[in-house]
């Protein structure tokens, strides 16, 4: 139940940002719609930390800025591989450890890996990830260590 207020605020903010109609009738409709959406979410059994992670918005935003930098770097790297005719692929599978993370942190880590071109999460579970990468780096655990630590910090608030 503690996640309901966060979801309520987030959905209302989303509605107002999209709508731009500030008259009382429309705001009333917004409140009714948000309540109905939340009721439907609860009815489907989805209410919880993952449906309403909005209390972690600030650390997530900070993480997103860092992630954008990584995405730009790996975009350039993959673009090079595509354009250079001589470039050779060295695809590799890596099993990463993701023990002791919440479901949210695991999903954030896995999605960050997939979002950066050149690496994609093939399988994700609570205890580990299976990652396919375009180029084999030095050591698989070290290569992803900064992303693992930062995503854990952003989602769970610990390093």
């Amino acid at each position: 139940m503690i996640y309901v207020p966060g979801l309520f605020i987030a959905l209302i903010a989303l509605w107002l940002a999209l709508s731009g109609h500030g008259e009382a009738f429309m705001v009333g409709l917004a409140v009714v719609s948000v309540i109905l959406s939340i009721l439907l979410t609860m009815c489907l059994g989805l209410m919880g930390r993952e449906a309403s992670p909005y209390h972690r918005l600030v650390p997530m935003a900070r993480y997103a800025v860092w992630l954008m930098g990584e995405i730009v770097k790996s975009n350039v790297a993959v673009l090079r591989t595509i354009i250079e005719p001589s470039a050779r692929l060295r695809p590799r599978l890596a099993a990463l450890d993701a023990d002791g993370r919440s479901e949210l942190a695991t999903a954030l880590f896995a999605n960050s890996i997939t979002l950066t071109p050149g690496t994609v999460t093939i399988e994700a579970a609570r205890d580990g990830l299976l990652v396919h990468s375009l180029h084999d780096g030095a050591d698989e655990q070290d290569e992803f260590a900064p992303m693992a630590a930062r995503s854990l910090m952003a989602a769970d608030g610990r390093g």
């Binding site: 071109p117 690496t119 994609v120």
Partner: peptide
């Protein structure tokens, strides 16, 4: 991997 360039 190549398609994710388009995505991101």
């Amino acid at each position: 991997h190549a398609a994710s360039i388009t995505d991101t």
